[in-house]
Design a protein around this nucleic acid. Structure first.
Length: 562
RNA sequence: UGAGGGAUGGUCUAGUGGCAAGACGGCGGGUUCUGGCCCCGUUAACCUAGGUUCGAAUCCUAGUCCCUCAGCCA
């Protein structure tokens, strides 16, 4: 933890510091990450996870993982398991502090009974539609339910009957008795319990009434001894009810603090839209490498540390904001540049024959594994007469700033020799099928004894030794910066977000590449073996992120001006 | 137009009455056996109008714009 750079503060730390100064929570910090197990975690959740676990660690406190499982109709163990896996992958440990709101059901029920006894809650037989009508509008007060003045005894009996299953779904609910004219609509006698005759993934058939979020969340926080209950901005209006319930019940009262959720350019982060992508078959699943889900990022090859760094960089505030996706890519590159071993791979092969190199000869040449990490050592790569280079690295009629291979031009093959292009072989249609080059034996290893310079260094692979692979190139799923702003956001999808390349040529060392471990394909980007689709005879690699490409930028401006 | 929030370079975030700072991006340069990394330089902001103050991004007043809320979802 000593390697941490000092970060700018944020408003939450101010609040905690203040609480520590006044001794409000006895100088302890207990936070929690409270996902509902009804979907997969995405990078927006990562912000919350890093915040909650990070603050707890920073202040010497603890952070609970609590599943907010109060709605049996939409929650499943599959999601519970996936969420645990994702949080652990991100690098956080909840230790023995794993909870479920459903753990607290019995206590929650007792609290509800207490509320009834205090005359602060009642069983309402209005239908859902009627409750909506009675609620009023943003500008008009609501009306009181005719069932609002039932006696405590009657309410006690009715609530007991609700629990016993004497009523059908929707027949009645338990409501808090607060104020139907409250300017904050959340306070107009909110529903506390509803009837759901459905099996719950943990409590089975033990219950047929389930607490609503507003009731379960504050009390779960209270029961678990949470001090700072950090949530997103849309719960701001609910804070008044959070406080009301805990004040009325006069029990441990955590402080709810809201922050702005993460938005990212060119991506959607709402659960609803993510589900649409999966169920509509627009992606291959929750862990499609183009998805902003943690499982997608993991499969793509993004290191957890890069996600954590990103979450630190973006900060925490109360204003709505949209982070440039470029910042995320920067964090991924920054980390991978330091850690990823370098290899050579040719994605779009162009055959090269070194005409003055002996046909039966093969030699091995040492290559640096990671210039950023001297301890990474070197490896040997085979060189022979027939090679592949990248098609993009040759141009018949190169423009001004193109430094790579062209007829008559000399370039360096990385860690190998200088070569000069002597002939361009084309087919009947005029397509370039191969290049003939000569090499300078004096330049072995990549330096010319006479000190002559060359403007480009190309990556290459020996044809006879290359591994064939499929490589998947990913780019943004959406064209628009704000895809969610469209009614039909599916129409805004980028049809070329996945490009599959086959017949790619990899250097032999990649035969041992472990799934999910990133390598830099020199001059191209960071890639990793896809653990799911790789077959023994057909490796599949995912592109995690490209390298920055100033040549592409030059090309773009040249294209724009001419 | 009820209530609750929010407005600082293109983007994100600091600032808590005393020189508006950092990161990403952009632009220019250096270095380089990766057009990568690294290094140097540069660009560019306090929503508006008043007020308090020696001094205001910060405090006060008024306004403008944006977000959230009318689930038996969370």
């Amino acid at each position: 933890m000593s390697s941490e750079i000092s970060l700018p503060s944020n408003f939450i730390r101010y609040i905690i510091n203040e609480d520590n100064e006044t001794g409000r929570y006895d100088n302890t910090v207990v936070t929690r990450f409270p996902p509902e197990p009804n979907g997969y975690l995405h990078i927006g959740h990562a912000k919350s996870i890093c915040l909650n676990f990070g603050l707890a660690r920073e202040y010497g406190g603890i952070c609970h993982l609590r599943f907010d499982d109060t709605n049996p109709g939409r929650e499943e163990v599959e999601y519970v398991d996936a969420i645990k896996e994702d949080v652990a992958w991100l690098g956080f440990d909840w230790g023995r502090h794993l909870y479920y709101a459903s753990d607290h059901f019995e206590k929650l029920y007792a609290y509800a009974v207490t509320l009834i006894r205090m005359g602060k809650a009642y069983v309402d037989h209005l239908t859902a539609d009627e409750i909506r009508e009675y609620r009023g509008t943003l500008t008009e007060p609501g009306r009181e339910s005719p069932y609002r003045s039932r006696s405590v005894e009657e309410n006690l009996g009715l609530f007991d009957a609700m629990r016993n299953g004497d009523f059908a779904d929707g027949q009645c609910v338990l409501r808090a008795k607060i104020n139907m004219a409250a300017p904050n609509i959340v306070m107009r006698d909110p529903t506390l319990y509803r009837i759901r005759k459905q099996a719950h993934h943990r409590t089975g058939d033990a219950w047929c009434i389930y607490p609503m979020y507003d009731f379960a969340h504050c009390l779960s926080d209270s029961i678990e001894g949470i001090t700072h209950s950090i949530c997103t901005l849309e719960f701001e209006n609910n804070r008044e009810l959070y406080d009301w319930i805990l004040d009325t019940l006069d029990t441990h009262h955590p402080r709810q603090i809201e922050f702005a959720r993460l938005n990212l350019t060119y991506t959607v982060l709402s659960k609803r839209r993510l589900i649409q992508l999966v169920e509509g078959g627009h992606v291959s699943g929750w862990d499609d490498p183009r998805m902003p889900t943690l499982s997608g990022l993991r499969r793509r090859g993004v290191p957890a540390a890069a996600v954590r760094n990103f979450c630190e960089r973006i900060g925490v505030a109360r204003r709505d904001s949209t982070v440039d996706f470029g910042l995320f890519e920067h964090c991924v590159r920054e980390l991978l540049n330091k850690s990823a071993p370098r290899v050579m791979a040719v994605l779009r092969p162009l055959k090269i024959v070194i005409t003055n190199y002996p046909e039966d000869r093969t030699e091995t040449l040492p290559a640096v594994n990671n210039p950023e990490d001297p301890d990474a050592g070197t490896r040997d790569i085979p060189f022979s007469r027939i090679l592949y280079v990248e098609r993009d690295d040759f141009m018949l009629d190169p423009p001004k700033k193109f430094f790579r291979l062209a007829p008559g031009r000399e370039v360096r093959l990385r860690y190998a020799y200088f070569i000069t292009c002597t002939d361009v072989i084309t087919d009947e249609q005029g397509n370039i099928v191969e290049l003939h080059c000569t090499y300078d034996p004096e330049t072995r290893g990549g330096d010319a004894p006479d000190g002559r310079k060359v403007k480009a260094t190309l990556h290459w692979v020996s044809a006879a030794h290359a591994i064939d692979a499929e490589v998947r190139l990913y780019s943004q799923l959406f064209f628009k910066e704000d895809p969610a702003g469209d009614d039909d956001f599916i129409a805004g999808m980028n049809p070329d977000s996945l490009e599959i390349l086959s017949g790619c040529k990899l250097e032999p060392s990649l035969a041992q590449a472990e799934p999910g471990v990133a390598h830099q394909f020199e001059r191209l980007g960071y890639f990793c073996n896809d653990g799911r689709d790789t077959m023994p005879d057909r490796p599949v690699f995912n592109r995690i992120v490209t390298l920055k490409d100033t040549w592409a930028k030059v090309q773009k401006t040249q294209g724009a001006s001419g």
